[in-house]
Design a protein around this nucleic acid. Structure first.
Lengths: 336, 336
DNA sequence: TTGTAAGCGTTATCAG
DNA sequence: CTGATAACGCTTACAA
């Protein structure tokens, strides 16, 4: 950094407008009482000088910075990118600003991220992936920092959790597979062990069990396209090849489908039915036309923001909010 | 916001450790001189109290906040998401933090974003899309805010520009198409009019012209998959169907390829050669295997950050930096 | 409605 | 090496 950084201050504006600096402050404080004429002169001077309120100093006094910290891993994936996009949109719409912390590098980096949030006195942190230590989340809550956990499944007091009904989605898939005449069910997932992935797996195995069917569960690597290809490799080489696969995410499903078609020359959905989860953009592409569950991204973002503004509704104080993931029917399962 | 927000201050730590607050400050300032014993006691007290330096206050004094503002549209697209991910990674590695502003909503929102950057006294802004008014960029530069423009093609003094050699890439494509025996060239692009898209178009038309070939340029809608499908619809219904298409981005190429195969039953690359640009993850998926140009994302991020830290190298003071986009050869062009 | 003055949590300066 | 003191740019009683 070489720059001089000489920003214009409220004092300078006050001098030019011939008023006190409090008058300047009030002009830029919504709802403060200031005479129209004073206001006009202040705004004129501010415009001429290129004045912008220093939000750092303001945050120092007001004890509210307007900064919301987004803590996220796997930011490059379509689902996450979309969620971030929607969240920043909603935040900006109410005058907040997003601070972005990427936790791809290491495992304890969620803690580090949360510490950053505290240092910048963020009004809240939204955790989209990874689990922080309770010690540090306690610190956040103690310091009055709101904490929102998305798809993380746990619900400690003082935190706001949003989850999906992965269990119900899993039941829906089993029904669809059965109706398509499938009997040999498989679940393809990664080794990540994320709460939502686990919920989908357990839900699927249980629902299949209730129909008297056993599920082959295969897991491999990091959640993504390559994992899907690898999982197909393993599952489709079996003697008793599955005829229906529920993939933990759409990315896995895309990889799985590609391997099934291009490497095993299978016809989807004739030889093999596939379902995914997330409804990423690629799921609707002509090469996939994947039947999947849509994450209610918009609603997740809206609920989060409204909670930030209005405080936690009493009903949610203890239990996390559970939203519905809607089935999007496309061609990867027979007989829609 | 309901929360009380009682953060612990340096004073509290000083009291507990039995030292002055300057001692506390020095303990957390890299390179400041403080006795080991004092340091130990301060750290102990800080740990016990859960103290974290207030970066807002620090920024106020130091005139350096550590905040870098990322201004971006189309954040959900694979290329942009990946760039953001890489940039935040690189920024965090040197102790900076990213502030994210989404400019999808309106056209003048880049200006609004830049104003946010000023309000929070960001050390720099990195503009990944859209063009701000010169009036506001001048304001940034005047205030000592560094400004980095990526793929924006212009180069005003005090700003740091990074571009790709789209022209050379275009020449390379023409050569590849000719070698594959293609004669009827087309360029598929959106109506966005982004500098890089225009550079690719002009470069392609020119390079083809040098070989005595004319290019059919078709443009439609917003840059993305759907535009690609639509463009295929138009181009492939022509009497003289093109036998080679250069798509302005990979997303367009994916849509184009899908439409060509699934709606026009064409064989890629036998009936039709396709090239894209960006090398997004999907380009390597088995359903596409798209020949494309890789954006040097890592290098873009590295250069940006190093410029932030070290200041602008003299050679780049006037001219933007031009990086090379490497051809990634896959199966969508015949005869690699 | 306005100005004055105190204070937010830091860091930089400067004696000791 | 340490501690007092003065900024930094703002908001907000409080008094005028």
């Amino acid at each position: 950094m070489v720059s001089p950084k000489i920003f214009v201050s409220a004092q300078a504006v006050a001098d030019r407008a011939g008023v006190s600096r409090s008058a300047v402050s009030r002009t830029f404080t919504p709802g403060a009482s200031v005479a129209p004429e004073t206001r006009r002169r202040v705004l004129e001077a501010a415009e001429a000088l290129g004045y912008h309120v220093n939000h750092l100093a303001r945050g120092l006094m007001r004890n509210e910075t307007g900064i919301i910290c987004l803590i996220v891993s796997d930011l490059g994936s379509p689902y996450r990118a979309n969620l971030i996009k929607t969240l920043t949109d909603e935040l900006q719409a109410v005058g907040k600003i997003a601070m972005l912390v990427n936790t791809d590098r290491s495992d304890d980096s969620v803690d580090a991220a949360l510490r950053q949030a505290i240092r910048y006195r963020a009004d809240a942190s939204i955790i989209l992936s990874g689990m922080p230590d309770t010690s540090i989340t306690d610190l956040c809550v103690k310091n009055g920092q709101a904490l929102i956990l998305i798809n993380r499944d746990d619900s400690r007091p003082g935190q706001f959790g949003i989850n999906l009904d992965d269990g119900e989605a899993a039941r829906t898939v089993v029904t669809a597979f059965l109706r398509a005449g499938c009997r040999r069910l498989a679940f393809a997932t990664s080794e990540a062990g994320t709460p939502s992935l686990i919920a989908r797996e357990n839900g699927f195995v249980r629902a299949a069990g209730e129909q008297g069917l056993e599920v082959i569960v295969e897991r491999h690597g990091r959640t993504g396209y390559d994992a899907g290809r690898m999982l197909a490799q393993r599952l489709l080489m079996r003697r008793e090849r599955p005829d229906a696969v529920f993939c933990a995410t759409d990315l896995i499903a895309c990889g799985f489908m590609d391997a099934a078609r291009h490497q095993f020359s299978l016809d989807v959905p004739k030889d093999l039915c596939i379902a995914g989860f997330d409804d990423i953009e690629q799921a609707s592409w002509l090469s996939y036309e994947l039947t999947t569950f849509a994450q209610p991204v918009q609603e997740i973002a809206r609920k989060s923001v409204s909670w930030l503004l209005a405080g936690m509704p009493a009903e949610q104080a203890q239990n996390p909010l559970t939203l519905h993931a809607e089935l999007v029917w496309r061609r990867s399962i027979r007989g829609g």
